[in-house]
Each structure stands twice: as C-alpha cells, then as structure tokens.
Computed example of a mutant assay.
Amino acid sequence: MRALAEFSIEPSDSGGGTLVFSGPMVVSSLGVIDSKLRAISEPVAEIDVSAVERMDTVGAWTVWRLSQQLDAKIVNCREEAERLIEAISKTDDNRESVRAPRLPLLTRVPDEVGTIVIGLAKGWLQVVGFLGQVVIAAGMMLRHPRRFRGKALVHQMELVGVNALGIVGLMSFLVGIVIAQQGAVQLQQFGAEIYTVNLVGRLTLRELGILMTAIMVAGRSGSAFAAQLGTMKLTEEVDAMRTIGVSPTEALVIPRIAATMVMLPLLGIYSSFLGIIGGAVLASLALGIPFFTFLSRIQEVVPLHDVFVGLVKGPVFGLIVAVAGCYQGMQVKTNAEEVGGRTTSAVVMAIFMVIVLDAVFAIFFTKIGWG
C-alpha cells in the first residue's frame, strides 16, 4: 500500500503550535491532506519536517506556502529539502516582484523617457565605435591592398545592384507616371501642362530618383546584411573567423559597404532615367506631348547641377544603408528572435537617416545656390 503524507499540530513551549510532517511529501501523497492543510486556523510558530522521508518540488512548495500563510519558521530541514525550499522561495520572490504595483504616472513617465534617451545615446556611441572600426580596417587594407577581398566585393555588387535592377526599374517607372499624371492635373488648370516636363525632370533627377532607390536598397539589401551577419554571429562563424586570425570587419563589412557605395549612385541614375521614361510615356498618351520631344526638352529645362546633386547623395546614402545593416547584424548575441528584431531596426534606422540627410542636403544645396 502506498504511504501517504501525514501531519499533526503539537503544542510548543515557546508559544504557538508546531506543525509536524511525516511520511513522503511528494505530489502523489499530498492530495489527501491538501484540503486539511488549507483549513488550518490554529496558531503555528514552527513547521517541523525532520520526519519527512522524501520531498519533491510540490512538497517543498507546500511547506513554503504554509510558512508564509501561517507566519511560521521551517525547522529541522534536511539538506536536499532545504535546497528545494530555498529554490521555491526565490521563485516566489521573483513572482511577487513582477506583480509589484507600477510606479505613479508622474514618476513612471520621466523614468521611462530617461531610459529611452540613455539607450539611444548608448546606441549612437556604439554606432560611432563601429564606424571607427570600419575606418581602421579600411586604413589597414589601404596599407596592405592584398588583404582586400575583390571577389567578395564583386559578389556584393551583384547582389546589391544587378539583382535590384528589376524592382528598382519598375518602381521608378511607375513613380514617374504618377508624378507626371498628378502634376499635369494641377498644371492644366492654368494651361501650363507643358511644365510637366520640368516637374518630372527636376524632381526625378534631383530628389526622388536617388531617395526612392536608397529606400528600396535599405529594405532589400540593408535587411539582408543584418540577417546574414546576425545569423553568422549566432552560428559562431564570426568568432571562428577571429580565432583563425581573419578580421570580420575586413572580410564581411568592408565589401558590403564598398559595394553599396558604388552601386547606389549607379542605381540612382538608372532609377532617374526610368522615372523620366515613365513621365514621357504618360505625357505622350495623356497630354499629347511626343515622347522624344519630352526627352529633348528634359535636356533644356533640367540644369546640370541637379544631376550632380543626385550623384553626390548616392555614396552617402549607400554608406548609411550599409553601415546600418552591418552594425545591426553584428549586434546580434542571443537567439533567432533577435535576428528579426535587428533586421527591422536596420531598415528603420537606414530609412530614417536617409530622409534626415536628404533634408540636410536640400538645405545645403539651396544655401549654395543649387536650389
């Protein structure tokens, strides 16, 4: 017959009774006495477990719960049982701390805002440190050109640039159509639909061509950089490279940054060209402006410095996109879920910085007379 746990309450000289357990205090033997234990109303000062034969986690939790409920001290505990009860007490403390009431609103809001600001400041310091590592690695490769990985650069240029021609071209063509159509609708009110050429040409070459391309590359290649490097961090490939004396910055980061800085201006030119083509198609179909007349007038109404503005932005936007993706990927430490979070952060960070820098460029070029 299976042994059951038993208990009794014995008088104590120190005042209050002593709750004495005996038998095995395991999950299979506690069910019979559980309701009786919960109904105890007598004052108890101590809980004696010296006669307990075996104790599992359920038994330890029962003793700990009773000690808290009756405000009693646990005595005569064997070593194994003591370890179990101590572990249960720590778990219970953690649970209570999680359920602790939140701070008042006037205290909680400044505290959370301060935490976010400090986190952002630390993040930007880490980005600056990462840029420093990239600059040092680039300097080392300039001193020792044989360390530069040409094949990796060509491979990344193919992934960033050549493979993106389809989606970037289609997007730019459709954006050109939209700009021409919306502009023509407004300009027709004044009989000035011929100026649709000016609108499409300048807006595409100066702003939208390179900006939309940078956003597309951030979503396509920046996220890929973060996911690739983050996965390599999880699988300890990056640590293995360091072990054999290969710099991860030189082997993984520099080729991606260089490829993006080279290909983004070229993709920007390609995007602007297809945007103009899209505007010319819409103008020939809806406005009666011949296709080649539209293209020839582009050369007359778009100043050359608009082309230079787009070209200057390209490498800077490429640097931002690549650094954001590589930095977030190299920050992965724990699990696969963090890879997804870092990938999202890379895209958000890159797009935000690209738009901020585009606004800075707009102000700067206006100040120097290239507005």
Score class of each variant (00 low, 15 high):
S12L: 03
D13K: 09
D13Y: 13
D13L: 14
S14Y: 11
S14H: 10
G15C: 03
G15E: 00
G15W: 00
G16F: 01
G17P: 15
G17Y: 01
L19T: 02
L19I: 02
V20L: 10
V20G: 10
F21I: 10
F21K: 02
S22I: 15
G23A: 05
P24G: 02
P24D: 05
M25C: 04
M25R: 10
M25V: 07
V26W: 01
V26K: 05
V26T: 04
V27H: 04
V27E: 08
S28Q: 09
S29A: 03
G31I: 14
V32E: 14
V32H: 14
V32R: 13
I33L: 13
K36M: 10
L37F: 02
R38M: 05
R38K: 15
A39C: 10
A39D: 07
I40S: 10
I40F: 01
S41I: 10
E42H: 06
P43K: 07
P43T: 13
V44L: 04
E46W: 08
E46F: 11
V49Q: 02
A51W: 05
A51P: 14
V52S: 05
E53K: 14
E53V: 08
R54M: 08
M55G: 02
M55K: 07
M55H: 07
M55W: 10
M55A: 02
D56R: 12
D56M: 06
T57H: 05
T57F: 11
T57P: 06
V58Q: 12
A60N: 04
A60L: 06
A60V: 03
W61N: 02
T62F: 11
T62L: 04
T62I: 02
V63R: 00
V63Q: 00
V63C: 06
V63W: 00
W64I: 05
R65D: 04
L66M: 06
S67R: 01
Q68I: 15
Q69F: 15
Q69A: 07
L70N: 12
L70M: 08
D71S: 12
A72E: 15
K73F: 05
I74N: 00
I74L: 00
C77N: 03
E79F: 07
A81L: 10
L84Q: 08
L84T: 03
L84N: 00
I85L: 03
I85W: 04
E86H: 06
E86Y: 02
A87Q: 12
A87R: 11
I88V: 15
S89Y: 12
S89E: 06
K90W: 08
D92G: 05
D92K: 13
D93E: 11
D93T: 12
N94Q: 09
S97I: 13
V98C: 03
A100R: 14
A100L: 08
P101Y: 07
P101K: 09
R102I: 07
L103H: 09
R108M: 13
R108V: 09
R108C: 04
V109S: 01
P110K: 00
D111P: 09
E112A: 05
V113P: 04
V113N: 13
G114H: 12
G114Y: 14
I116Y: 07
V117T: 09
V117H: 04
V117C: 01
I118S: 04
L120M: 14
L120F: 07
L120N: 15
A121H: 14
K122Q: 15
K122H: 10
K122T: 12
L125M: 11
L125K: 06
L125I: 05
L125A: 12
Q126G: 10
Q126D: 05
Q126E: 09
V127L: 08
V128G: 01
G129D: 08
